[in-house]
Write a protein that binds this DNA or RNA. Structure first.
Lengths: 152, 152
DNA sequence: TAGTAATAGTTGCGAATGCAACTATTACAC
DNA sequence: GTGTAATAGTTGCATTCGCAACTATTACTA
């Protein structure tokens, strides 16, 4: 207990905060912030989804999603079409401007991962990817089983 | 394309956000938020340090530290004494109220780590602790080498 | 010793985020 | 069908956080 530097939670915090700052700096020439790029890269692979689906997939609050999508739409990076099968929802598509930007962003994200995994073997990288995914999954399940008493 | 769900950065983000929310819920009966508890637990082990030392050790911006310490002082969890050897700095100590609360917070943090590492072997846990620490270290060095140079 | 650097801390600003309350639409009872 | 519950999205509020500009003190240097 004396040495806290191996704490999972503390290193997660450091990596998250530094990662956000890194991406923000690297794409600051666009008007896209660290809170929006993840939606662009996700929509690149999953065009036509709704905000609800984005929120669920990325495990991000739907209010946060709404604000990010709003900014990206204002910036001309995506468009929203009302889903005619469910008029509450939108179907979201990247514009050409959005599509053009994604490779740049992806390169920055890959560069970040490369930098922080410097000195870490491919095997260890596989290991950490697998375990991080499992931990995130645990965290998500934990959250689901909380509070909402009517379901699950 | 490539499945993005193993992305280090995405799972780090999920774990950070869910972790913050978990701790906030678990200690909401106190008036301590998820942005302050880390200072309490750190001061428990390192009493008498300055805000600068806290910022450096936790790798948190000194402005953020100042605000957290201010709240904790207002709540009566710690006191600040001017360092007579350097009148710019304070030496920070937990009060009895602060000391009494730390075990409760530590228990919640340990419970969180236990919950998210459910189904993960001790060996894997050691592995992830070591690699996360290394990645956080890389991130920190990256940040250091940025500001020093004048270019970019 | 005077003048400049660096350092410790504070504060204001803005971004990212979650939560809760709200509207509008859809789904499901009956 | 009517009424209630669930769902998609919006918005306001509060918290966390980093950055930059600022003050006060200390360290360094010429």
């Amino acid at each position: 207990m004396s040495n806290d530097e191996a704490s999972i939670r503390r290193n997660i915090s450091t990596l998250y905060r530094y990662g956000q700052a890194y991406i923000a700096r690297r794409i600051e020439s666009t008007n896209i912030g660290s809170g929006q790029y993840i939606f662009l890269t996700t929509l690149y692979r999953m065009g036509g989804v709704s905000q609800e689906e984005l929120s669920c997939y990325l495990q991000i609050d739907k209010g946060t999603t709404a604000k990010a999508i709003k900014k990206l739409e204002a910036g001309g990076y995506l468009v929203r079409e009302i889903d005619l099968k469910d008029k509450r929802a939108y179907k979201i598509f990247l514009t050409q401007k959005g599509l053009d930007l994604v490779p740049t962003i992806q390169a920055e994200v890959e560069q970040w991962e490369k930098l922080i995994t410097s000195g870490i073997s491919d095997e260890e990288k596989k290991c950490i990817e697998r375990i991080l995914h499992k931990m995130a999954h645990n965290a998500h399940n934990l959250n689901k089983s909380r509070g909402v008493s009517t379901r699950e």
